[in-house]
Design a protein around this nucleic acid. Sequence first.
DNA 1: GGCACTCATGCGCGCATGCGCATATGACGG
DNA 2: CCGTCATATGCGCATGCGCGCATGAGTGCC
Lengths: 123, 123
Amino acid sequence: MDEITILQAEILKVLASPRRLEILHRLADGPMDVGRLATETHASQPNVSQHLAVLRTAGLVEAERDGREVHYRLTDPDVIRACDLMRGVLGRRLTRLGELAAPVLPAKSGSRSAPRDLATARS
Amino acid sequence: MDEITILQAEILKVLASPRRLEILHRLADGPMDVGRLATETHASQPNVSQHLAVLRTAGLVEAERDGREVHYRLTDPDVIRACDLMRGVLGRRLTRLGELAAPVLPAKSGSRSAPRDLATARS
DNA sequence: GGCACTCATGCGCGCATGCGCATATGACGG
DNA sequence: CCGTCATATGCGCATGCGCGCATGAGTGCC
């Protein structure tokens, strides 16, 4: 098994967390400190700090101290691009499921309908 | 928390597995049956089947029966593109680490503890 | 120095996940 | 039918992860 693949899985494992995705998404708009991230994501400060530590260990974000605050920023914007690609895949997936199950539903943004469970569609 | 983000994390969680990444990587070159995948990835057949089930449930691959065999194929090529982007991020990351402190690269096969942690570089 | 603020870390628990293994289902041929 | 090949599924165990909580560490202000 390729060594790179293992490392890649490591990175993906780090990304495979709603909270961390949310954090990265916020950081995509520019650097931010921990407290603000905690507030905006409605999570506790230690929790956010832990997630940031994970992201930092994986090399996805970088930290810089500014007074009392610590500002985090994305290391590589391609991470966001990759996430957006994934989001596109997901979107197409939901659209396809919607076509199969839903008669007429304009899939506008904010439509959080049924597809809680991915799949459920088999051939 | 955005619903989409949760689903995205679900997808990423599915991708965060070396074996599944390897499977997807093989499927990128065209459809393949379970036995062949098991052989090429040096994994047991039940194991591969389980991973394929996970990938199928996540909607990343699709299955089609052909006689006794079941051929699996990628649902969306963008998954591979996203993985490649991640690989690029990883590559840049390793390069940067190499520039900072690269007297040796002890990446011997079988030893998955060499670049085990991706960071260890702090400011 | 003492205090307030911001962030990081350690701990313990509950829960999900991956694996090997045995076995069930499904399909083709004789 | 029955044996065989190809695939899927159930089980049990060990491991890892996320979370809340309390606490430690670093910084600036008075």
